[in-house]
Simulated assay, not measured.
Amino acid sequence: MKLSYVYILKCSDNTYYTGVTSNLNNRLLEHKLGKHYESYTYSRRPVLLMFYTEFTDINIAISTEKQIKKWSKAKKEALINNVYDKLPNLAKKKFN
């Protein structure tokens, strides 16, 4: 059974990058070394792994990555900090 990973990196400009991979250690090394010049993290190094989770189905991993990418910074930080009870309220639209 091959595992896939969804991960969140904190970049040097305090933004978050969410990705999916089948080899977490290798992918993190690529981010840290700046292997991909065109990538989001290249000019925002150094990066720090803040969160990751494992999946046995790559399709679910990809779907989860896409979902997290749409989240607000506050919602990503709640996930990173294991404050799962805050996630539903952070998903609600704020009205002025």
Rank of each mutant, 00 (worst) to 15 (best):
D85N: 12
Y84G: 03
G34I: 10
L24S: 11
L29C: 07
S63A: 03
P46K: 00
S72N: 09
S72L: 09
Y42F: 08
E38P: 07
A78F: 13
E38T: 12
N23W: 00
D57T: 03
A61S: 01
V20D: 00
G19P: 01
P46E: 07
K32G: 11
N14L: 15
E38F: 14
K66P: 07
V47G: 06
H36S: 12
T53P: 04
F51T: 02
N59Q: 08
I68N: 04
N59D: 05
T56V: 09
K66I: 05
Y16V: 06
V83Q: 14
S43F: 04
R44C: 02
L33V: 11
Y52K: 05
I62Y: 00
T21H: 04
G34K: 01
D85T: 14
R27H: 04
M50E: 15
V47E: 14
Y52C: 04
K69D: 00
S22R: 08
I68C: 02
N81W: 07
D57G: 04
I68W: 07
L33K: 08
M50W: 08
I58V: 07
T53M: 09
V20N: 00
N23E: 09
R27N: 00
D57N: 05
A74P: 02
V47R: 02
Y40I: 08
N81M: 14
Y16I: 06
I80A: 11
L24R: 03
T53H: 11
F55S: 00
K70C: 07
N82S: 12
G19R: 00
T53K: 13
A61Q: 03
V83G: 13
L33H: 01
T53V: 05
L87V: 14
Y84W: 12
T53R: 11
K76L: 14
T18N: 01
K35C: 12
N25D: 11
T21M: 05
N14K: 15
E54M: 09
Y84N: 03
W71S: 11
T41H: 05
K32P: 10
R27A: 04
N81R: 10
A78P: 11
R27D: 03
G34Q: 02
Y52P: 08
I80E: 05
N14T: 14
W71P: 10
K76G: 05
Q67T: 13
L33F: 03
P46V: 03
K66D: 10
K69V: 08
H31D: 06
A61N: 07
N82D: 04
S39Q: 04
Y42I: 01
G19N: 10
A61F: 01
I60Y: 02
T41M: 06
T15L: 14
S63C: 09
T41S: 06
E38L: 13
Y37N: 15
S22G: 13
I58K: 01
T21E: 01
N81I: 07
L48A: 15
E65C: 15
N82M: 05
K75R: 14
T18M: 10
S22H: 06
A78V: 15
N82V: 06
Q67H: 08
F51D: 12
F55L: 02
K76R: 15
E77K: 10
